[in-house]
Design a protein around this nucleic acid. Structure first.
Lengths: 188, 188
DNA sequence: GTAATTTCTTGAACTACTTCAAGAATATTG
DNA sequence: CAATATTCTTGAAGTAGTTCAAGAAATTAC
């Protein structure tokens, strides 16, 4: 966490200690829901160990993964957290999970006390925004096959930890179709 | 611009004057490229009047719209602007355009001098991130028909100012298919 | 360590959306 | 206001990806 803070802004040792003081460690078991759609998300989470998926449930009850999180990633339903509204997204532990959680109260407190933390979060949000925009661009430009190819070449470790079903959902296709792509790739 | 600043953070009158001082007004004609992919984007733009589209060109030379901007919107290739790297996206005026432009130098200067500006930009980035995430979720959940229906009911003014072709590209479908949807809707 | 559950694969029929081509309508330019 | 360019529509044929169903493989749980 400390090194993550320093990567995105300049903190004094004192400030770092002050920031870290406002986090609490939490543990979840595999399959636990950390954040539930319909409830207010009062925390942001920094992953120390384990991984999560964020997903939304549509009118037909079908789940769609919008994000994965691994070690050193933040997750949370930012809209819910910021506006105290009901979350649209669920976040579920895909492995036993250890997180550093910060409450809205503490987040706001640190934000008002430590300018470096505002800059830190600005930089995180900016990077997230760029990432999401690039993801949309890929969806518009590429076929499902190209998106799958790119995922496994750029993030091969994802395959190790995330089931095909969840990858399919993230890419916006059915697991059956990924199976077809795999077979096709194997035949080459 | 002033009211926009105050909506997203607390500025003193003095700070506002200081911020505004660092912008320059620029004008573009309809169809002009404000930002070109492959070049470094050294400005961020706040739209006073007119509208723009952001798009990316794929390997086949096909254009894909990733964003529209209207009055009181910011635009720019944030990745290029931040890292001084070549822009991936083009931004083109769809109408005669008046913008307030701020250079990277001035942006960084204001950021270091005025904490309220860091908070302002943090809030903008956060909202943009939320917007993009929701857009991805819609792409995963909805058919093109549903996305089109939602666009015209939630943002009917868009239809007034943006051509069908550009809307189609934004939604990730062909203009022909939008035509089919329109016909279908008209028959009801 | 075997039963139960979940994940992955395969195939056949289907559908949302694309491509190409050509004409009609609209907007832009000199 | 005529000429040109661009946008929009229509239709027919094609394709990327879906759905459903059922079996095989892998994980999880007692």
């Amino acid at each position: 966490m400390k090194s993550h803070l320093l990567t995105y802004s300049d903190f004094t040792e004192e400030e770092i200690a002050q920031v870290l003081y406002h986090f609490e460690e939490k543990h979840f078991k595999k399959k636990d829901l950390v954040i539930s759609a319909g409830q207010i998300d009062r925390y942001q989470y920094f992953i120390s160990h384990g991984c999560v998926r964020g997903y939304i449930v549509d009118y037909n009850g079908k789940e769609h993964n919008i994000a994965f999180g691994f070690e050193e990633f933040w997750f949370g339903d930012m809209e819910s957290f910021t506006n105290n509204t009901k979350a649209h997204y669920n976040y579920q532990a895909l492995e036993d999970l250890t997180v550093l959680a910060i409450s809205k109260t503490n987040w706001d407190k640190i934000s008002s006390e430590i300018p470096a933390f505002v800059e830190y979060s600005r930089n995180l949000f900016r990077n997230a925004m760029i990432f999401q925009q690039n993801r949309i661009a890929k969806h518009l430009m590429q076929t499902a096959e190209q998106r799958y190819e790119q995922l496994i070449t750029e993030h091969p470790y994802v395959l190790q930890r995330i089931s095909l079903k969840n990858i399919a959902s993230y890419l916006g296709v059915t697991p059956e179709f990924i199976s077809i792509l795999r077979k096709k790739a194997a035949q080459k």
